[in-house]
């Protein structure tokens, strides 16, 4: 029982990070129909900005805020400079551009910060809370991860549901031409969408870095998990990406916790889940593709 609780708690914490990363992918996909393969590298870049600040003596929180802000700027600049020229063109062009960006950004990080492993501090403790006579797998830092992702999601839901800006962003995402005819500055909304996505992606990167090691490519595996989580949720649905992230986090945690030598199978398990979802429900669990076609 204790093991089950611990494995589940681990899965939830991991799942929250996948959810945040998947959400970043979904925000971009649904507004520009582009899978941003550079999302992980962009997040790594902002983590290294945070690390540089921490090394220079700033507190974790200053570093966090600056990193998220630089994510915002990075997302906007990438959309304006690199993505805008290929938007609306053949899909492969955008794929190649984001892949190129992915390679370029990681190389740039390696040039500036070196490619060795560096430890990244966590804002809260990494020892599990004590319950009864032992400790559970939920740590103060884990709580911080869960809490900050939840708050981010609530803020995004609030933005999209209840503000005029959010309405303009949704209109731009779902009906570019119509939105333009109705006077919505669609270009700006798309830039903002990329910027917000990069913030959420950066948050995922910072959370996963906390208490661990970072190097220029440390987000690479998260791209795979985030992508699987996003597909699980239907790629189009922010709520779906969150649920997808949690499901994936739990399943992978059970695989590594209960399957003999399971920790080596985690990557494989993620791909199996991806294939099964694509076979059984190609549109994902929260697909809205039917409504899009209507």
């Amino acid at each position: 029982m204790r093991q089950f609780v611990n494995v589940t708690l681990n899965g939830l914490t991991q799942g929250m990070i996948f959810a945040a990363f998947a959400l970043a992918l979904v925000l971009i996909w649904r507004s520009t129909r582009i899978v941003n393969f550079a999302q992980g590298a962009m997040a790594a870049a902002t983590s290294f900005i945070a690390l540089a600040l921490i090394h220079s003596g700033q507190s974790y929180w200053v570093a966090l805020v600056v990193a998220l802000a630089s994510g915002l700027v990075l997302g906007a600049v990438v959309e304006r400079v690199v993505i805008r020229p290929v938007e609306g063109g053949p899909e492969l062009n955008a794929v190649i551009v984001t892949l190129g960006l992915f390679v370029a950004i990681e190389a740039l990080i390696a040039i500036i910060a070196g490619s060795s492993f560096q430890s990244f501090p966590a804002p809260f403790g990494l020892q599990g809370f004590s319950v009864g006579d032992g400790r559970i797998a939920l740590t103060p830092n884990g709580l911080f991860i869960i809490g900050s992702v939840l708050v981010t999601m609530l803020l995004l839901v609030g933005l999209f549901r209840f503000t005029r800006l959010g309405l303009a962003m949704r209109a731009s995402a779902f009906g570019q031409e119509v939105a333009r005819l109705l006077g919505v500055r669609v270009g700006r909304m798309l830039t903002l969408g990329w910027a917000l996505a990069a913030v959420v992606g950066s948050l995922a990167g910072l959370l996963i870095a906390g208490g661990g090691l970072v190097h220029p490519a440390y987000m690479d595996s998260i791209i795979v998990y985030g992508f699987v989580a996003a597909v699980l949720g239907g790629l189009d649905s922010p709520i779906g990406s969150v649920v997808g992230g949690l499901i994936l986090g739990l399943l992978l945690s059970y695989v590594s916790g209960y399957v003999p030598r399971g920790s080596g199978l985690v990557n494989l398990a993620a791909l199996v889940i991806l294939v099964v979802v694509l076979l059984v429900r190609p549109g994902g669990l929260f697909s809205s593709t039917t409504s899009r076609r209507a």
Binding site: R170, F174, E177, L181, L182, S291
Partner: peptide, 26 residues
């Protein structure tokens, strides 16, 4: 000048009320 495009440009994912609100956003 308001242009209603061919094929009834409703934004399918938004509600009726939201579609109207988009029209008044500017």
């Amino acid at each position: 000048m308001a242009h209603v495009p061919e094929g009834r440009g409703v934004i399918a994912e938004l509600t009726v009320e939201e579609n109207l609100r988009v029209g008044a956003l500017f």
